[in-house]
Design a protein around this nucleic acid. Structure first.
Lengths: 213, 213, 213, 213
DNA sequence: CATGAATGAGAATTCATTCAT
DNA sequence: TATGAATGAATTCTCATTCAT
């Protein structure tokens, strides 16, 4: 049941988000810029301008630059996690769910470099920069993607769809593999070959699937 | 032949490097600080002081801060790659080499958080920050770790030690898994459990080894 | 007739003022904050909040921050001057009036540092800041305390209660002495010793009293 | 021995100070501007420009604006105190010394409003602003003028030049009187009448002198 | 080669004031 | 009247980079 179709979701995400109020508008602009230029090289003035508000308005909603960063990051990760969970939920069996999980995660690659980079590095920066002093970050956001994956694996093993594998190691390899593919593309900037993504996903499925030989 | 021993290399690396000349000294200091505080939050003055030279001297050897960053990063990555290659070369058979490869890579975790973070994020930052304008980075450094791994896999498959797997997908999963474990520890800052590392390595070996029993 | 009693008036003043309308409420809050933190470090938002009104409301009653400052200052000084005059009026003879004058003035010390500081410096600041451009301050407020004192001295000299002294110089010394005692306590923040205040007042009375014994 | 001459020292002080190095230059400019506009309304950029140095240079010598303020103030007060002490030392007898003390102190009035105001208010501001957190101010500077005065009084009483008075109260009155005269002139900005200064000084001498009737 | 004093462009942050409701 | 969201001018402070010695 290894298919050749690869679901590509459109992730030009920050524009999808509904522009409800000024705060949302600022978060959207902040995300775009933080993605594009990183924390240090993004200045509040640009965020404000891009959001179409005054510089002072940013400080009306966020204590300081760090706060803006954490808030944006948290917002985006929640957004993605929820999306992922919803999509995965549409799969009927574990194997299909895992397929969706991988495809959906990798589809970030088709949006733009900035978002890819954001997912890989900026999130870590969040932790470092903010885990330090006065900021508290909700670590659970970062575990969410793990949890979704582990649940699929557990289910698949119970259903005898999957081999009996070390759930933790395998999930680390799957999630890590996804990240690594993104990293590679980020670094080398070459076109994303559907073939590579397919091979990866199929390899994963092959590895854990009970050989229905 | 799945062993329970896990080779832990000491990676208090930057001090190992032989302090040959002033340039080396500056690179060493730069690495330590970039690891610790990231690019933006590291200032040239600290680097100079820590290296025991004048601020102006830094500019004698490096065009600007970016140049210092690239040079240090490149230096460190080469250093690690060479080390990894040498260590791996000591393994007799593919399976043993793969074991060494994984153990050695993960042993970075036992040195310190800063170095781990450096390996995961800073390298990507290098690309972004420097791929932009005037700087050219030698991408091959980042491929080196791949190449070493792929060579092992190819060899193992030729020797019939390993199953016939998709080499690219598997290497992405292994390297990605290693990174992911490091990332997890970086984010949650919990103690590194030898057990987890062992399980990961053994899972990998199990997956690609021919005799599943 | 040099007594050992020292009249201590309670100067937790700004709360005594009757909270008639919103404008009064704002003045009261402004005074408290200007006293406590000075002009520059007091922000309109705090004043509004502390007065229980909206920020815009402040601008309904006062042209700008300067105006608020002048108005509050003027209000407070008038308030104190009137109080002083009333109290002094209760004395029967010049010597007693002088005693009341000094005691009452010094009793500000027993209220709190902020008010003391206000009386010594902020008033001068008012002049400087406002004598500049668009604001006109009624200087007569500052002369009032002088006038009250001089009247007592004149009366005392006419009555032969006091020696024939240079009225201007003596009043400068008395008023200046009072200020200086306050200043000292402000700077060194030590407890106000009743003894010191008594000695000062008695010295003054001794100097100008006819019967030195 | 009440003379009609009044010694007027030239206090265009900040220009007298020898322009030794950049730090001195900055202190001089800072003093002039702080005097003129107060702490809050003086901005570092102006100080730098007026001192003929770059903005960054100010921060090379002073931790921050507060530090610059304290340093300048301390410098100026020491400067004045030393000058006063030297001048007073030239007087042969207590009465003459006291005369010099008063004349010299009041001669600040002949310089300019800014310096006068500085002596009266800014010093207090120093205390408030800086006695707060991280700054330590040497209170002894503020006691110096008292000490010089008290020493004169003690000496005079021992010599039987002066009556036996309450030294503390009298010194408070003298110093306070001097300040009050300055304050008055500061507020009303009228011309300084030599007559007034003379009367004040002579009144003081009269009060404490043994009637050599 | 080495140095570190000097610089000023640039960034974060504050807050008086306005104005639509 | 009363409000408080929105604003941007103004200010403090940092730090990469230069250059005279």
């Amino acid at each position: 049941m290894i298919t050749e179709t690869f679901l590509l979701t459109d992730w030009s995400v920050f524009d999808i988000m509904p522009p409800m109020d000024k705060k949302q508008e600022i978060i959207k602009s902040a995300l775009t810029l933080f993605c594009d230029k990183g924390f240090s090289e993004t200045d509040i003035d640009s965020v404000a301008k891009s959001a179409g508000v005054g510089k002072g308005t940013v400080y009306l909603y966020f204590k300081d630059k760090k706060d803006l960063f954490i808030s944006s990051t948290t917002y985006a990760l929640n957004y993605f996690n929820n999306d992922l969970e919803k999509k995965v939920g549409e799969g009927k069996k574990a194997k299909e769910r895992l397929k969706i999980y991988i495809d959906h995660s990798l589809s970030i690659l088709t949006s733009n470099k900035a978002i890819t980079r954001f997912f890989i590095t900026e999130v870590l920066e969040t932790m470092r920069r903010c885990g330090k002093k006065d900021m508290v970050v909700d670590h659970s956001i970062f575990l969410k993607r793990y949890d979704i994956l582990k649940k699929i694996l557990d289910e698949g093993m119970k259903n005898k769809e999957f081999k009996n594998v070390n759930r933790d190691s395998i999930s680390v390899m799957i999630l890590g593999g996804i990240n690594m593919i993104m990293t590679k593309h980020l670094i080398f900037g070459n076109k994303v070959e559907k073939k590579e993504l397919l091979e990866f996903r199929n390899s994963v499925l092959e590895i854990i699937s009970k050989e229905t030989k």
